[in-house]
Design a protein around this nucleic acid. Structure first.
Lengths: 325, 325
DNA sequence: CTGAAAGCGCTAACAC
DNA sequence: GTGTTAGCGCTTTCAG
């Protein structure tokens, strides 16, 4: 491994100049710059990150904590974050908290001093813990808001109320919300938004749950759908798939006897029979933006940013007017 | 942030002794050890990893490259790897190659000098590139073998031939293999194993593909199933789900007219109608073991290890005897 | 615009 | 067993 000293010698300059040429090209005369660059090229010089980190205090790594990878929902999030990191020559340190606040805290502590900042998808866990963490390192929250902490939220609250509007328009008046994990920040927002929307229309929202956001839970939820309900919105795709399956097993026609919709949109939803009406969510963009914001914060003064990403209703075959009694 | 010097002063010893006490407790007298430990505790001392990396040449990080996260198949792999890393106080640097050999190479180059070693899930890409990479850094391959490079393989070749045995036993004689991504190492192994198994039994294997391992490709594959075939094994769960859906749409009964099985086992396969016979694969264990092996290699002499993890057929409702003509 | 020199925090020889 | 010393490779004052 060639070092900066090698490059400097090869270019016939001092280490300081070599360093400047590579880091701050505008601080160096054009011909010198060229010499250093070509020397670095020739030697295939890769700066030693540890050494750089030691002097600058910046590691060039950013931490990303997600609750799980078992749900493909997070795949584009990670991808978006990785792409954004690549563009600035940063690296992603990824950890999975498994929806466990204690584990999340332990992991965050463990990596905090190795990264320049942290992007966290932390649906559960206390505001306090997140606030505290933000005091030490730059922190960007995804799909959650805590006070004035920087955040990127997928506006599924707005989205679910559009989903409800879609159902109301079809004529539904008794709508169920099959809600997600207990304590989920986004879940509570959606519930509130849907409630407001239904009540304003003189309709009724029946909340089931909280439920684990799984296929199986969706199946079981079918038994708990209140009498008279003609449409159900599920917290996520898995619950919706479970509903679909459970309804089929129970001999209840979709959308004839029951309309269903999901508040996110895994690709399989478009391919089921019937295809499932869902909320398109810019997940990759959220990952990308979170990293961009984090790097802004690392660079400049700690501005407060709160981005809100719009979602879009994808109407499909699982929603239709209720059967007239 | 307190440094080792602070700890040393607080404990009334030299930096060297403090360092030894923390790193090699057995090289230090018991009372000294105690003093240093309590000093470190009191100050909440966290060693600076960059500094340590600079002197030791070891970063305490290991790289993990996976082709995608959109397939939940890889979730337990990452989790297993992360758990193993945690246990040795290492950190995981995760990157996603998106099944793109060029991207994979670029990412590997980028992180190579930041990690002590690399675990790669590299189903595509050339042997040569992997061999070359292994010359620079310790490398453990997952689900692929290249010469004598250390590897952890999920023995789905053996597994698929057991799947075929299961089908043969049911009476099938014309079996299709709906194969996976072009150039996939594991796919080729499975194909060979299944071919051998069918031919030995005087039956026939019809290979479809290569195909992208997706739900949609599975649907389309239905149209390509040769006349006379009564059972199909799919490269993965998505293809199998696609088959199931496509067959249903085509009015072909499963398992009455066509048996299907998958060569991996996402949880949804157990919950479809009918549930799908599949190959249980110890994915989390593979992730764990790969990291363990990597750390062994980093520590000791570069031994050649090749682990082969057994899989298990999970018979479900999608396989049954063929309809007698 | 460039060079010399200091030092980031830690570990590893090498003495004592 | 413990302390002293010398760097690891880089960035950054500070002079020139």
């Amino acid at each position: 491994m060639p070092t900066l000293a090698d490059v400097a010698r090869e270019a016939g300059v001092s280490k300081a100049t070599a360093s400047r040429a590579l880091m701050r090209p505008d601080m160096v005369a054009a011909p010198t710059l060229e010499r250093v660059r070509s020397a670095a090229e020739r030697l295939d010089f890769q700066p030693n990150r540890a050494a750089r980190a030691l002097t600058t205090g910046r590691t060039g790594m950013i931490g990303l904590i997600v609750p799980t990878l078992a749900n493909p929902f997070f795949a584009p999030l990670v991808l978006g974050a990785q792409r954004a990191a690549e563009e600035t020559d940063s690296l992603l340190l990824l950890t999975v908290s498994e929806y466990d606040a204690r584990r999340e805290a332990a992991l965050a502590d463990r990596i905090a001093d190795q990264v320049d900042g942290l992007v966290m998808v932390a649906p559960v866990g206390t505001d306090r813990a997140l606030r505290e963490r933000a005091r030490h390192r730059p922190l960007v929250l995804v799909d959650r808001k805590v006070g004035r902490l920087p955040s990127v939220v997928l506006d599924t609250a707005q989205g679910t109320s559009e989903l409800v509007a879609h159902l109301l328009e079809l004529g539904h008046r008794e709508i169920a919300y099959v809600s997600g994990p207990p304590g989920s920040w986004a879940d509570a927002r959606r519930r509130d938004a849907m409630r407001a929307q239904t009540e304003a229309a003189g309709a009724r929202l029946h909340v089931l749950g909280p439920l684990p956001p799984t296929f199986d839970a969706g199946i079981e939820a079918v038994g708990a759908l209140p009498e008279g309900v003609t449409a159900a919105v599920a917290y996520n795709s898995y619950l919706a798939l479970g509903l679909l399956h459970g309804l089929e097993a129970a001999g209840i026609k979709v959308p004839g006897e029951m309309s269903i919709a999901a508040a996110d949109d895994l690709t399989t939803l478009a391919a089921t029979t019937p295809s499932v009406t869902a909320l398109g969510v810019p997940v990759e963009e959220a990952g990308r933006l979170a990293v961009v914001r984090l790097l802004e914060i690392c660079a400049g003064p700690r501005r407060t940013v709160a981005d809100r990403l719009p979602t879009a209703v994808h109407p499909r075959d699982s929603t239709a007017p209720p059967r007239r009694p």
